[in-house]
Design a protein around this nucleic acid. Structure first.
Lengths: 190, 190
DNA sequence: CCTTAAAACTAATATTATTAGTTTATAAAC
DNA sequence: GTTTATAAACTAATAATATTAGTTTTAAGG
């Protein structure tokens, strides 16, 4: 019966393009409505708020990222899988800076779908770490460490926070080598 | 000759308290003016813009952080100095979440003072790494890796991005162990 | 064809940063 | 002690922000 114009998916898609081009913090409903050739209040027929839209971006980002990570790790030895994971993670962030930024947002307890995706990525890491002999508590600790190292590197790279004239690819490769070696320290429980 | 009321320092101090309590993204000139019992436009007699105020917070944060780091690393062996650096870094971030957040802002080329502070912290790391036998390009690469690992961990901790019921202190200790071990991989040039 | 429900709209409110222009207080000069 | 210059604080205004309420439009189902 109703008018068929916009859809939530279309809004999220346009928002995705926007944040990847101009940055998450530049996103506003006014600019978004302009791109969609619609007045700002019309967006509220499809999304609850700007915050909710950002949560949608978070969710979309995690789903896409998970797909990439799965492709990059399937049918590989543990070390190659870990490398594939890391390269894929960084590559996703560099190609989708706005979406990546959205994945780092603090999320409320009720956002179950987002937590679910995050949990599945965590489990992917745990499977890889099993190949390194890491299980249980040690594996969880190692996961935290890996996540921190990866996210930190990519975040600083995106924010141009390094500021030194060093090749980023080489830096990442060495960082990854260090991450792999560091895993040995998680093997000894205690 | 003029009225002597506010000062830039006072504004920055109040902003510091505010962001540490409510978060950097909650900072607005309206709320700040309210706390200072002043109308928002009055702030422009002392600061150029909200952006500039955030840069001031960035600068203040780096100066305080540098002080902490120096105290935590002076007169120690290289490994103890690195540990001191790491613990001090994390401790600063946990005690001053808003200020720490401000240090991660992307900064323009003209903000020389901020770059200067960042550079001095970098040099502190390089001195520590010399004790590990790291110099030149290897040391710079290792610095990037350390910065990424540290900032990533603290950022995820502040954002409650880990989400697992694991003791954060233990996680950080193991993460740090891993960081130290990973340094060996930066020793071999190539 | 007509009803209905949702989508898009207009109008409005409140908060944001910021600029222009005016008033005021006070420290220095006389 | 009075005057005066000056910077600080003010009021008023603009433009952008998110959001809500209420109205109009439109397209699909009966």
């Amino acid at each position: 019966m109703p008018r068929v114009g916009l859809s939530q998916a279309e809004i999220v898609n346009t928002a995705t393009e926007f944040v990847n081009e101009f940055g998450l913090e530049q996103l506003s409903l006014g600019k978004l409505a302009q791109q969609l050739k619609v007045k700002p209040p019309s967006l509220y027929n499809h999304i609850a708020s700007l915050e909710e839209l950002k949560n949608q971006l978070n969710l979309k980002a995690l789903r896409l990222l998970k797909q990439d990570l799965l492709k990059a790790t399937v049918a590989k030895t543990h070390e190659e899988a870990l490398k594939g994971f890391a390269y894929s993670y960084r590559s996703f962030a560099l190609k989708n800076p706005g979406l990546f930024h959205a994945t780092l947002r603090t999320v409320e307890d009720r956002e179950q779908a987002i937590k679910q995706e995050g949990h599945e990525i965590l489990e992917l890491i745990l499977i890889i770490l099993k190949g390194f002999g890491l299980e249980g508590n040690s594996a969880l600790q190692a996961t935290r460490s890996l996540r921190a190292s990866l996210a930190g590197f990519v975040l600083l790279e995106l924010n141009e926070g390094f500021g030194m004239p060093l090749d980023m690819n080489e830096s990442f490769e060495k960082h990854l080598q260090g991450m792999i070696i560091s895993l040995s320290s998680f093997l000894t429980e205690g």
